[in-house]
């Protein structure tokens, strides 16, 4: 299953709720303001690092760059994708759940 998060974890609990329900082997894509959860040094870093042990986490590069954030500051283990990669993720997973 692919979970998508489009809200900053500092604004809503979408990321936390998503990670509460996402199972081992699932994939999570951070995009739009959701990308703010992907960086080193935030209070969500340990949550992300912990989740990476059992889940795949991706971040959408165009949304990272649009916001002046740096892909080289993304937490180790998070993979970067572009829109084509986003499409591939939806193909590779049977269902897509948007945590709006």
């Amino acid at each position: 299953m692919l979970h998508t998060i489009n809200k900053s974890p500092f604004e809503t609990n979408s990321l936390e709720t998503c990670l509460r329900f996402a199972r081992a082997g699932h994939s999570v894509l951070l995009f739009e303001d959701g990308i703010y959860g992907a960086f080193k040094g935030t209070r969500f870093e340990s949550l992300i690092t912990d989740s990476l042990k059992s889940k795949n986490i991706y971040v959408l590069v165009p949304d990272v760059e649009a916001r002046g954030m740096r892909t080289d500051n993304v937490i180790d283990g998070i993979k970067t994708v572009d829109y084509a990669g986003f499409v591939d993720l939806t193909v590779d997973n049977k269902t897509v759940q948007a945590w709006l």
């Binding site: 509460r20 329900f21 199972r23 269902t95 945590w99 709006l100």
Partner: peptide, 18 residues
Amino acid sequence: NQDELAELMEQQDVVLSF
């Protein structure tokens, strides 16, 4: 609880969120 709900989500074909 969350495990039951996670299991339920896993079984779905289409998830609509609003």
